[in-house]
Amino acid sequence: MEQQLQQLKNEALEAIASASDVKSLNDVRVKYLGKKGPITDLLKGMGKLPAEDRPKMGALVNEVRGEVTAELESRMAALEEEAVTRKLEAESIDVTLPGTPVKTGTHHPLTRIIEEIEDFFISMGYEVAEGPEVEKDYYNFEALNLPKGHPARDMQDSFYITEDVLLRTHTSPVQARTMEAKEGKSFKIICPGKVYRRDNDDATHSHQFTQIEGLVVGENIRMSDLKGTLDRFAKKMFGEDREIRLRPSYFPFTEPSVEMDISCFKCGGSGCNVCKKTGWIEILGAGMVHPNVLRMGGYDPEVHSGFAFGMGPERIAMLKYGIEDIRHFYTDDLRFIGQFRRAEG
């Protein structure tokens, strides 16, 4: 019987070793260790043995069963690991295939510029003021020191709707309206919006475009405050190493009036095609609010003063991104807008 047991053990170990997968190994388990298996049979047959042989044989059978079980388990673990490895191998993919497209849109480049400007001035304590695109002649011109017949009205040929109503030619009427609404209190605003002028659309003209203007009114607002504000703005918008310069100019609603140039962000001032070899790029117009404008807005120019500035987001976008034709902003070609989806900096 001992011999029989030894042979059984050898058979079982051989079967374990040759089982190639979990299923056949399970078959081996059932065959040798199952309730109807030979080892169980042997145990059942113990009753027929003489009593003195039983403990020895019992221990022997248990030893064989323990050995077979241990071998089976270790083989099982190995096969399971093998199975996982095979599964992983089978599941491997080509990671160089492109990912599933995520469809997102993007904002218009003008919105990008306008929001950037808004956010800068908001951080400096400004509110964002808006107003109607169809305006009264009074707010568009008269309240801004441009009475009927003023020569500077030539500068902006307008779309009139009636004699007294027109499409605003600049966002300045928002300034006039804000002064009225603030009733003599100090304030800082910027006014972004669409404006309209009687121009034929071409590479540099558009009958509809955008503007963003700023206005600060308070006691003892100085021209140096305007310069400091614009200097911070230029650095934020065009880079920390930008310098600004002011040149005298003329706007009916400011006195003194200036134009602001920044040192060229492309060549740094040495002269290139962006700055037309001058080293400077004209960015905006500005000035100290004209006393007539303050007066019409309900402020006493003896007590209050202010500064104002205005710029064209189209121009800034064209300079910043190297866009050559203003009409791109209004044809809404996805091949154009889509280029402004990424962050800068």
Binding site: F187, I221, R232
Partner: peptide, 25 residues
């Protein structure tokens, strides 16, 4: 006076006004 004195000579300062918080409505 300013234009002949030179705008480059104007210092850069920031307005000193009541502190009104800015922001979007």
């Amino acid at each position: 006076i300013a234009r002949l004195y030179g705008y480059d000579e104007i210092p850069a300062t920031l307005p000193v006004t009541e502190s009104i918080p800015g922001g979007l409505s």
